[in-house]
């Protein structure tokens, strides 16, 4: 047992926790995005607007498997954020200040790699806002609207679609979402590759492939999410 603790407290062990939790969150983002894109699916004949998405949300909140995964997800976000903050504080102390000369090293990883904590804290604040807007309404708001005339397993189905469309009609919400998604893109463009480097999986052969996938992922995932506030703001 002692060796596990020693490993987890070593510099490389601490970084491995960052990379594994980070990659778990990357996987989560794919599923979360695909699930939410159902906002755009047309309702079947005779069903109210947003039917497909609301039924999806209903089943997500009524499955014990999803419940377990989501608790894991909350835990990993908190672990990743806490570990990231602790590592950054430790690193700042190990450095002990900046140089007065202004030259900057010509690195392959650009400015994002030096600002992971800033981007991360922004993401954490965003996650707080986002969960308040939708997750907390779903779970705790007793006046949450329901889809008229739809009963599933003897229960009314909450109309999350309505909440989403109201939220995305407000310009400040759209702007905050787009800024946060830009921060996510920057966090990922470094983070995704960095996680593989930390796990020791990058070399001359795989490095370029990982960098390419990281770039594609960091563009496509935030872009996919961005379609939702933009399309709702402009067209619904």
């Amino acid at each position: 047992m002692k060796w596990i603790i020693e490993f987890l407290l070593s510099s490389l062990g601490k970084k491995l926790i960052m990379s594994l939790t980070g990659l778990f969150l990357c996987l989560f983002l794919v599923v979360h995005m695909l699930g939410n894109l159902q906002l755009f699916l047309p309702s079947p004949e005779g069903m109210p607007e947003g039917y497909v998405f609301n039924m999806y949300a209903y089943h997500m909140t009524h499955s014990s498997l999803i419940k377990i995964i989501s608790y894991g997800n909350y835990f990993f976000i908190l672990l990743h954020a806490l570990q990231g903050i602790l590592i950054t504080v430790y690193n700042r102390k190990a450095k002990g200040g900046k140089y007065q000369g202004k030259g900057v090293s010509d690195t392959a990883a650009k400015m994002a790699s030096r600002n992971m904590i800033f981007l991360g804290v922004l993401l954490l604040a965003f996650i707080g806002l986002h969960m308040y807007q939708f997750w907390a309404q779903m779970h705790f708001n007793s006046e949450m609207p329901v889809m008229a005339g739809i009963i599933e397993d003897g229960e009314e189905v909450k109309d999350l679609f309505a909440i989403v469309s109201v939220a995305f009609k407000q310009p400040w919400v759209v702007i905050v979402y787009l800024i946060s998604l830009l921060a996510l893109a920057l966090h990922l463009v470094h983070g995704f590759w960095s996680a593989f480097q930390t796990m020791g999986l990058s070399n001359n052969k795989y490095g370029p492939i990982i960098r390419f996938v990281a770039m594609a992922y960091a563009i496509l995932i935030p872009l996919g999410f961005a379609t939702m506030p933009i399309v709702f703001f402009l067209f619904y």
Partner: peptide, 17 residues
């Protein structure tokens, strides 16, 4: 290396540059 108080690697790549 850890005991000497060096920081953790964030894969910035400034070292290599």
């Amino acid at each position: 290396m850890d005991n000497e108080g060096f920081g953790l690697c964030s894969n910035v790549g400034a070292c290599e540059a």
